[in-house]
């Protein structure tokens, strides 16, 4: 059953997509989500960023289940 996912965006990723949050139909996995984002925002293709699910960085393709908090994180530059 399709459902909507809520995505938070930060730093230069937020700048590129023009918003710090967006909603889309759940593409099912983190890799599918990336492909969907690249289609919607071609500027992201050349950008380095990671995904976090429920505030944990994901290292490989991961299923996105309902209610997960998804975030797009460019390289950190605190300090």
């Amino acid at each position: 059953m399709p459902h909507t996912i809520h995505i938070k965006a930060f730093g230069m990723v937020a700048e590129t997509i023009g918003s710090d949050s967006l909603e889309m139909e759940n593409p099912g996995s983190s890799e599918a989500l990336k492909q969907q984002l690249f289609k919607q925002f071609p500027g992201l293709k050349s950008m380095k960023f990671s995904l976090a699910l429920d505030k944990k960085m994901i290292q490989s393709d991961t299923d996105i289940s309902q209610g997960k908090e998804i975030a797009l994180l460019p390289p950190f530059s605190g300090g």
């Binding site: 994180l73 950190f76 530059s77 605190g78 300090g79």
Partner: peptide, 14 residues
């Protein structure tokens, strides 16, 4: 701590 803060905390500087 300083090294880990800079590398691991999701903070961005514009």
């Amino acid at each position: 701590l300083v090294e880990r803060i800079k590398a691991e905390l999701p903070i961005w500087g514009k």
